[in-house]
Simulated scan of single mutants.
Amino acid sequence: MSVKTMEELFVHELSDIYSAEKQMSKALPRLAKNSESEKLAAAFETHLEETLGQIERIDQVVQILGIKLKRMKCVAMEGLVEESKETIEEVEAGPVRDAALIGGAQKAEHYEIAAYGTICALARQLGYNDALPLLEATLKEEKATDEKLTMIAEGGGQKARRAA
């Protein structure tokens, strides 16, 4: 990664999160399918719809700014997606797997929150005012998804204790 300017850093970070969102769009259906809780499965399905919208927003940012994304793979998200596959293989279906899937999904959300926070800060510094609302909308959605997962986890924890 040879980044020398704030503009290059912005493009690099936007390219990275674009890859992350693409990977999430492929992982979320698997998470929904392997969730025992209907509420959790629905949350993953809802977030898939949001993720597809977030990818569209990045495309809009690219168009607005007249930039070209780098072809790259977000290795951080790749690792988180791989962890979710291992969880599905290694943890028996039920409340414990759901808790593990929520934890893994929240790791991914926290990564995305950090990435979008950085990208928004860079956009502000660079005066990308036309693109900023699109990026801030995605940041807000990522935070809301994290909160929703926390609420599901706290409700599911009671179910797991009753089952034990």
Rank of each mutant, 00 (worst) to 15 (best):
S37V: 03
E49F: 01
E56I: 13
M24G: 01
E38I: 05
S35T: 00
L52K: 15
A27R: 11
T51S: 14
I58L: 14
P29L: 11
A32F: 13
K39P: 02
T46F: 08
L52R: 15
R57I: 06
L48N: 09
Q54L: 03
E36N: 02
I58A: 12
F44G: 06
H47V: 02
A27Q: 11
R30D: 12
E49A: 11
K26Y: 08
S25P: 07
I55H: 04
E38S: 04
R57F: 15
Q54C: 10
T51A: 07
P29R: 10
G53I: 00
A42M: 11
A42P: 01
T46M: 09
Q54I: 00
S25F: 07
K39C: 03
E45L: 12
A41V: 04
L40A: 14
A27S: 07
N34V: 02
F44A: 03
K26R: 08
G53W: 06
K39D: 12
A42W: 02
H47L: 10
A32P: 05
E45F: 05
K26D: 08
N34F: 08
N34W: 06
E38V: 06
K33W: 04
S25Y: 10
E49R: 07
K26Q: 12
E50C: 13
D59G: 08
E49H: 04
K39N: 08
T51E: 14
N34S: 15
A27G: 03
R30P: 03
K33R: 13
M24P: 00
M24F: 14
I58D: 01
Q54H: 07
G53M: 05
E49Q: 01
S37R: 00
S35W: 11
E38D: 06
K26C: 04
K39W: 01
T51C: 14
Q54T: 14
N34E: 03
E45Q: 09
A27W: 01
H47Q: 09
A27T: 04
S25L: 03
D59F: 15
A42G: 02
A43P: 06
L31F: 12
S25C: 14
T46A: 09
K39L: 05
I58W: 05
L28K: 13
T51N: 09
I55R: 05
K39A: 13
A32D: 06
R57Q: 01
S25M: 12
E38T: 09
E38K: 04
M24L: 15
I55K: 09
E49N: 05
Q54S: 12
R30T: 07
Q54M: 12
E50L: 14
A42E: 14
I55F: 02
K33P: 01
R30K: 13
E45P: 02
E36K: 08
E38N: 11
F44H: 14
T46S: 10
L40S: 05
L31Q: 07
G53N: 11
K26P: 02
A43D: 13
E56G: 04
L31H: 00
A42C: 04
P29W: 04
S25R: 12
R57S: 09
E49W: 04
E36F: 10
R30S: 11
K33T: 06
E50I: 02
E38Q: 11
F44Y: 13
E36T: 12
R30L: 08
M24V: 07
A41I: 10
P29K: 05
E38G: 15
D59H: 10
K26V: 10
K26I: 01
S37L: 10
R57A: 07
M24K: 14
D59A: 02
A41D: 08
I55W: 01
E45D: 08
I58K: 07
A43G: 08
